[in-house]
Amino acid sequence: MKYSQVRVLAGKGGAADHFSEALRGLAVDRRDSVYAAGDQEIKVFESGGRLARRWRTAMPGFAVAVAGDGRVFCGQPGQVEIFDGAGRLQAAWRDEQRLGLVTAIGFSTGNVFLADATGRCIRRYDGSGKYLNDIGNDNRMKGFLIPNGAVSFGVDAKGVIHSANPGKHRVERYTAGGALLGHFGRFDGRDPAGFSGCCNPTNVAVTGGSRIWVTEKAGPRAKVYDAEGALLAVIASDVFDPNCKNMSIAAGSRGQVYVADTVKLQIFVFEPLGGQGGAA
């Protein structure tokens, strides 16, 4: 299985569809529009690559996610801002005692999961913003090992949370209640199936139930695994700036992959060759 780069969105600069300082979060909605959180803005690109909308957020956004009902969640330091599809602010969740920097957001029926990098765990809230429980900090390390400074996870169709635990070179599976179901991944500096460096993978995205997309840092690369943790493909490795770290990744309905280059501030779009390998 191979991927080819088909498009590059955004970039570094002052143009409307460019970012000037940072590009941190990516999300894809059902219509394959790309939501990118960077600087202090959210930019929405149509599937063709044209900038459709952009709006400012209260604080720099570290994560962006699109809920099933089309609302856009933006994770920020200490809070989550919720916008409607047009970018109008609808609510802001703050949980000052608990919630720190939100670096990933996921949904399952009736649940909103917020990755809290300050608390090194995933916080579970209900749809109205009521805190339910923590995931991933019921262990000896009191949370995920994140020398990268970000917790990243994806939620599959069954509501299982796949979270990166970079310090252990693993992707861990949790139930919404916080029970550890299992994990895959191991350290290996040579075999692409293993995770290299001190602490990888940095970011995880999940589509449906069968594909787990991850990115690594140093050297930066994007990979795809199947549900059992078998490597399907290395999507790309040499197009990214070598100093990239915490590259957000998202996958679209046709199996296309979006990876944010955090140094060049570009979004690389890859598509599988031969058109197969689409979402399950």
Partner: peptide, 16 residues
Amino acid sequence: AMQYERPVQAAPQEEG
């Protein structure tokens, strides 16, 4: 008031 005051500590702390 919105200023965020709990930065992420990438390095584990003593209590951790």
